[in-house]
Nucleic acid binder design. Structure first.
Length: 421
RNA sequence: GUGGGUGUAGCUCAGUUUGGUAGAGCGCCAGAUUGUGGCUCUGGUGGCCGUGGGUUCAAGUCCCAUCACUCACCCCA
């Protein structure tokens, strides 16, 4: 036998028995997105590497070590998308969406690629769905987009086991002021910080705040608080977001250490976490990115969005026992004798066209085996077509829940099955 | 990139300590019922014991290497 070829590390087959959960989740996502008047957008799986380098930030882990990057035959550096906001923003700019409406609300779902070491809830090809509201600087937009994800959680029945953590990193002016204050605070003990935190002291000192290194935690315990450095308009924005969340009864925890890993966030930053997951406990992360569209060559446009991990949300649902039942078959047509095949196929065509899910035997098996198969597939009816039935243009129809069985014409059998959907 | 754990039937796993004919449950196939599912009973299919090398009369079991999976660190969805 030839050697078996295996899946690439960190990728998954989504097989029958699992796909039903995906389909249910996708159905809920699409329904809620549509109710919130977001329109779906699909962008390419790969983009010019530069888009992510500029959009996500050169200093982020994603760009510096996790991207699948390759050169095509024309010598252009391409990258499998490691997130979707940059692609959506690129598309927004390229298609001149700002000309069509002052606020453009988009949602997406699809595969994401990051070359990391896999673990629970982390894969090299995984899936995200997300939403972006582009064009409004106002806090009500922040609240709408947060409540959008909250509504999805409610529809899935998992909102009780997910926690919203929220913070504000302020506008550019506030963040600059805070960054200076933080550096001044950390400078005396700089050499005691972890290696990465020392590097971030230069590149992005805010990130030192959410370091998990125990020594770093100790050293930053009494660090100045970001919220104290918000200027008036940033503070007002944040207050409005929180009070609107309260009026919607969406529970949240303020977390003044929450500084998300991507460079482009401003003002509101938030994360939904679940303790039903392993170490990778974030199911959704997002925030405002008022500077990104300008950075990517568009005109300055405020925007906010989030992205959620599909596999992680499914893990939460699984942990809570939110299982979708296996699909049931309407009708299993048991055929006895190959001479009955032409009639059988015509019946199947008619019944399937009428909207019934029908299956039949393709192994030339005994009636007993065909009934077993029908039972396995949870068939509501078994229709039996043997030689004696065919000669009379009749079938036996068996009701699998009661075991009852009667003989009737082809049309009567169809009518019976349609009437007892 | 670093560390821990695990690799035996389609699936979940025992067997490894103390080397001696590869097992269980579930699933699948069939029979009991010559054209009738589920429950029950009976039988059957299915394994280079991850891979390569070594020690030994003899290796799933001991030794070395290697690969894969998995969890965690870093970081993130």
């Amino acid at each position: 036998m030839a050697e078996k070829i295996q899946r690439i590390k960190g990728t998954n087959d989504i097989i029958p028995g699992e796909i039903e959960q995906w389909q249910q989740l996708e159905q809920v996502i699409q329904t809620v997105m549509t109710r919130f008047a977001y329109r779906e957008i699909r962008t390419p799986l790969f983009e010019r590497t530069e888009l992510f380098a500029r959009g996500v930030g050169e200093d982020t882990d994603i760009v510096s070590k996790e991207m699948y990057t390759f050169t095509d035959k024309g010598g252009t550096s391409l990258t499998l998308r490691p997130e979707l906001t940059a692609s959506v923003v690129r598309s927004y700019i390229q298609n001149n969406f700002q000309q069509t409406s002052p606020t453009v609300k988009l949602w997406y779902q699809g595969s994401i690629f990051r070359q990391e070491r896999p673990q629970k809830g982390r894969f090299r090809q995984f899936h995200q769905f997300g939403a972006e509201a582009i064009g409004s600087p106002y806090p009500e937009t922040d609240v709408e987009i947060i409540s959008l994800f909250w509504e999805i959680l409610i529809q899935l029945g998992v909102s009780d086991s997910v926690t919203l953590k929220i913070n504000s990193v302020g506008d550019e002016e506030s963040r600059n002021a805070y960054r200076d204050a933080l550096r001044a605070f950390l400078k005396p003990g700089l050499s005691e910080l972890s290696e990465t935190s020392q590097r971030r002291f230069q590149t992005n000192p805010l990130r030192i705040l959410d370091s998990k290194d125990p020594q770093d935690k100790e050293l930053t315990r009494d660090a100045p608080r970001l919220l104290d450095y918000l200027n008036d308009s940033s503070a007002q924005h944040y207050r409005t977001v929180l009070s609107l969340l309260e009026s919607l009864d969406i529970p949240f925890q303020q977390d003044d250490r929450l500084v998300r890993g991507l460079d482009y966030y401003t003002h509101t930053a938030f994360e939904f976490t679940s303790d039903a997951l392993g170490a990778q406990d974030a199911v959704c992360g997002g925030g405002r990115y008022d500077g990104l569209i300008g950075d990517l060559g568009g005109s300055d446009t405020p925007a906010i969005g989030w992205a959620a991990g599909t596999e992680r949300l499914l893990l939460v649902m699984e942990a809570l026992g939110k299982k979708v039942s296996e699909p049931a078959l309407d009708c299993y047509l048991a055929v006895l004798g190959e001479a009955q095949r032409p009639v059988a196929f015509n019946l199947l065509r008619e019944w399937r066209a009428a909207g019934l899910s029908c299956d039949t035997d393709l192994q030339r098996r005994s009636l007993k085996a065909q009934l077993r198969e029908a039972n396995r597939q949870n068939a509501r009816f078994v229709v039996i077509l043997g030689e004696s039935e065919r000669e009379k243009s009749m079938v036996q129809i068996k009701f699998m829940d009661t075991g009852e069985q009667t003989e009737m014409s082809f049309d009567a059998a169809l009518k019976k099955m349609m009437d007892t959907q």
